[in-house]
Amino acid sequence: MSTTAAESVLSTITGIVAAELATAPGTIDPDLDLRSVAGADSVKVLRMIARIERAYDIELDDETVFTVTTVREVTEVVERALAEGAAA
């Protein structure tokens, strides 16, 4: 995945996370542990994942979903899923 494409994924995911947390995308630090964000409970994290899966037409393994903690990690997981989908 090119740098531009990766940045696009990061931007999209940041937007989804921000929307779910009802905050501005600019306030989301990609390396921030989402579990430390006030209001980011497990239900909201699952909603984020559901939105991300739908946006990219992918299915993420729950083993992965429940281990990622930051937006950057989520982005990396999505990039891998997209790459695997492209290779299939």
């Binding site: 947390l21 009802a22 209001g39 909201k44 909603r47 559901a50 939105r51 739908r54 946006a55 037409d57």
Partner: peptide, 13 residues
């Protein structure tokens, strides 16, 4: 659309 319906934060469980 690629999005779930937007839900205002006030409606969150």
């Amino acid at each position: 659309g690629g999005q779930l319906p937007n839900v205002p934060a006030s409606e969150e469980s």
